[in-house]
Each structure stands twice: as structure tokens, then as C-alpha cells.
């Protein structure tokens, strides 16, 4: 089967500053992957490079396609809805998604919204942080595509919402789709991850199977991740 994602020798600079260099990563279909790294490590940049909204050097292929328009079609990214004014009704945002994305399935959205208890009669500004994140997740998962990128979906939300979101991921991720979830707080999502990818020193520092880490080192994912950071930047 074609890889969901292939990144080869990707380098990205902002002005004189290198954000990512020589990043290489291949993800197989049907996986849930944790993208871990400190704040500012380059996780969001990596996601923006994949969707094509940031442009760097190197090759990026999503489900076998390299052209930006094709890549965008295969990727559902958790947009933070910053383009919408606070007084926009959720029904209008949903209608917008239906128009823009061919693969947006209204039925899927309704199921997700019911499960996550989203009141679609509200306006965007009326949503709490947790509720807004649930909306973002529902919109992202309502598209039926090959690669889902969730950028820190759990930051600053309560544990009940977190559990609901994790459950919706398990239930609604299409079988052969791969999902990348970025986070700097690992323990909550560790049990649902197939693989972990660690961004450190401006590159893809490690890519491991989660259960392999547990089997090999007898430590949790969080401890493994911290151990890599504690090692400092001078090794190898």
C-alpha cells in the first residue's frame, strides 16, 4: 500500500533562522502517530509544510501525490477557525466546510456533533475553549480522507472533553487513514498511539513504535520522550 506520508530531506527557514533541517519521515496507512516535541520545536511548522501552507526545500508526498493541490485534497488539518468572526453561527461554518471540501460528509459531522455534544445553534464566540476544540475535531474528522493532522487538540481543555475527543478519534478515523496528533503532553494519549515521532534539534529526531519502546526500555512513552530531551543536544 502507498505510504500515507513521505517526507524527504525537508528544510525550512524563516529569515535566517532554521526551523527544520533534513527532516525525513515515512508513515504507513492506518496508523495513529504522536508528534511530540517542546513548544517551538517545529511541530506546527511540520504540519503546515505537509498541507502546503508553508513552503520549504525537499520532497513531501501524501498518499503518493506531490503536487500541492493534490496533497491538500488528501489532508484534513485541524484549522483553528481564526478566519471566522466571533458572531458567525456554527451552521454557517459547517455549510462553508461542506462547500469547500468535497469529502466533507454532513452525516458524519452530525454523528460527531451528537457524540461530542456540540450545540450547532450557537455562535462561534459563545463556545468555551473545550467546546471550540470539539468543534474543530468534528469538522476535521467529518472529512473522509487519507491523512488527518491534529495540532495540539488537547491543550488547555478539561479531562472529560479530552476523553470524548480521544473516543471520537478511535471511532471515526477511517481504517486506512493515518492520523498525526501533535502534543507536548503525552501521557493522556499514549495508549492510543501506534507510533511516536519526536521533533528535536530542528529535525525528526526519533520515530518508534510505541509498544516497542515499552517492550525494549520498560518505560512509559512520556519517560522515553523526556529521556531524549534530558540527554541534551551534544550526543551522537
Amino acid at each position: 500500500m502507498t505510504d500515507s506520508l513521505s517526507i524527504q530531506n525537508v528544510t525550512y527557514k524563516r529569515g535566517m533562522k532554521t526551523i527544520l533541517h533534513d527532516a525525513n519521515l515515512t508513515l504507513a496507512p492506518g496508523k495513529i502517530v504522536g508528534l511530540l516535541g517542546e513548544n517551538g520545536a517545529g511541530k506546527t511548522t511540520l504540519m503546515r509544510l505537509i498541507t502546503g501552507s508553508a513552503k520549504g526545500a525537499g520532497d513531501i508526498m501524501v498518499s503518493g501525490d506531490t503536487a500541492e493541490a493534490d496533497r491538500k485534497r488528501h489532508v484534513s488539518f485541524s484549522e483553528q477557525l481564526r478566519g471566522f468572526a466571533g458572531n458567525t453561527k456554527l451552521t454557517r461554518i459547517i455549510a462553508f466546510y461542506e462547500t469547500v471540501y468535497e469529502d466533507f460528509e454532513a452525516d458524519r459531522f452530525t454523528e460527531l456533533a451528537t457524540f461530542l455534544q456540540i450545540d450547532t445553534s450557537l455562535k462561534l464566540a459563545a463556545l468555551s475553549k473545550g467546546m471550540k476544540e470539539k468543534l474543530v475535531i468534528a469538522l476535521t474528522l467529518a472529512r473522509r480522507t487519507n491523512l488527518y493532522l491534529l495540532d495540539e487538540p488537547f491543550s488547555g481543555i478539561d479531562s472529560m472533553s479530552r476523553k470524548k475527543i480521544i473516543n471520537s478519534i478511535i471511532q471515526w478515523k477511517p481504517e486506512n487513514a493515518t492520523m498525526v496528533i501533535s502534543d507536548h503532553y503525552v501521557s493522556e494519549i499514549a495508549p492510543i498511539l501506534d507510533e511516536i515521532v519526536i521533533v528535536k534539534d530542528q529535525t525528526i529526531y526519533a520515530h518508534r513504535q510505541a509498544d516497542e519502546v515499552r517492550e525494549e526500555f520498560h518505560i512509559g512513552i512520556e519517560a522515553y520522550y523526556e529521556s531524549l530531551y534530558e540527554r541534551g543536544n551534544d550526543n551522537d
Binding site: 496508523k31 473516543n167 478511535i170 481504517e175 498511539l193
Partner: peptide, 17 residues
Amino acid sequence: VRQLAVDVTANVNTVQR
């Protein structure tokens, strides 16, 4: 498999294994 994954809150692939 998917129901089991939801029940225990784990990944479908892990449950399959």
C-alpha cells in the same frame, strides 16, 4: 475490534495485535 478499542480506549491496531 473497533468496539473493543472504544471499550478499552486503545488503538484498533493494538487491539488487533
